[in-house]
């Protein structure tokens, strides 16, 4: 009697794609539940840093809506950090542990692997972001005035699609840059916090700054969210929400297509140059 019967059914096509997405998102969702200390480190501590900026605004007697901008910016920052450190540089770490080779030789598509990483990260980060928003709103009595809930949800959704699309795209790029990628992720913190306007309306910049910054979906996303969620938002917005929604749609398509193209390119190049396996291999 055979010790193990043959596999009775192997899914292919979209079922396999979906299974791969779920498979790869699993460690992110479960990994987080297993380590509850994130509640402290990823919600409470960022909250303190948000509070520092809130108090700067209070010290210089800024209008109260600015306090809300900081709280929302702090929550959005959690997504940006997640994309930088757990998407963009992830394939590099996967290569070092040997997982990347196994992903590539499996029939599941790499696009599905990246999507799984993105959805897992998005889920985990959303819990953090909600924590920051709730805690921040309570502590600092943020007063939201929602102009259009539908538009707000749409903006958030599109921001996330394009943001994680950007993460998926840069993952391939960073894989080829190897260790340098770590430094580029680091470089993409403070300067991006600045030009994307995490803590203030970008309207105050000369127009070219937000235009350059719009490459990062959070720039448009946060500007639209400020306009849709705060009383003084519309007067402080850079461009109209509808244009920003269009911009986010374009970015989403561009980044997701870019992710696919770069992934293929990366795989071809890495297979040619022997860069898919861990450095010791």
């Amino acid at each position: 009697m055979p010790m193990l019967p043959p596999v009775s059914k192997r899914h292919t096509g979209w079922r396999l794609f979906l299974m791969t997405v779920i498979g790869r998102s699993y460690p992110r969702v479960v990994g987080m539940q297993r380590e509850r200390s994130w509640i402290f480190f990823d919600t409470f501590l960022p909250m303190l840093s948000v509070a520092a900026y809130v108090f700067v605004y209070r010290a210089i007697k800024a209008p109260e809506d600015y306090v809300g901008f900081v709280v929302v910016g702090g929550a959005m920052m959690a997504y940006w950090m997640n994309v930088l450190w757990s998407m963009a540089s992830q394939l590099y770490w996967e290569k070092e542990t040997g997982n990347l080779a196994l992903y590539i030789i499996s029939p599941g598509s790499m696009m599905a692997i990246l999507l799984g990483m993105a959805l897992g990260g998005l889920f985990a980060t959303t819990l953090r972001a909600v924590g920051i928003i709730l805690l921040g709103s309570l502590l600092f009595q943020v007063h939201f005035v929602i102009a259009s809930a539908t538009q707000l949800i749409l903006v958030f959704f599109l921001t996330m699609v394009s943001l994680y699309g950007l993460g998926m795209m840069t993952a391939s790029l960073f894989l080829l840059l190897s260790r340098e990628a770590w430094h580029i992720s680091n470089l993409a913190q403070e300067p991006i916090f600045l030009i994307s306007g995490f803590y203030f309306p970008i309207k105050n910049f000369p127009a070219w700054v937000p235009m350059v910054g719009s490459f990062i979906p959070l720039t448009l996303g946060m500007d639209a969210m400020r306009q849709l969620a705060f009383a003084s938002g519309p007067s402080l917005g850079w461009i109209s929400v509808n244009i920003e929604i269009m911009g986010l749609i374009v970015l989403s398509i561009m980044f997701l297509m870019g992710a696919r193209l770069l992934l293929n390119y990366m795989e071809r190049l890495a297979v040619r140059e022997g860069r898919l396996t861990e450095s010791r291999g």
């Binding site: 900026y53 700067v56 605004y57 210089i60 007697k61 800024a62 209008p63 600015y66 430094h183 680091n186 470089l187 913190q189 403070e190 300067p191 916090f193 600045l194 995490f198 803590y199 203030f200 309306p201 105050n204 910049f205």
Partner: peptide
Amino acid sequence: PFLFTIYSIVKPLAAAMILVVMYGVIT
């Protein structure tokens, strides 16, 4: 030199500029 520029100039200066802009916008 590349790394030095990132960590010693660009990052800290950008962080300072966030405060500068916050202050400038309000005052």
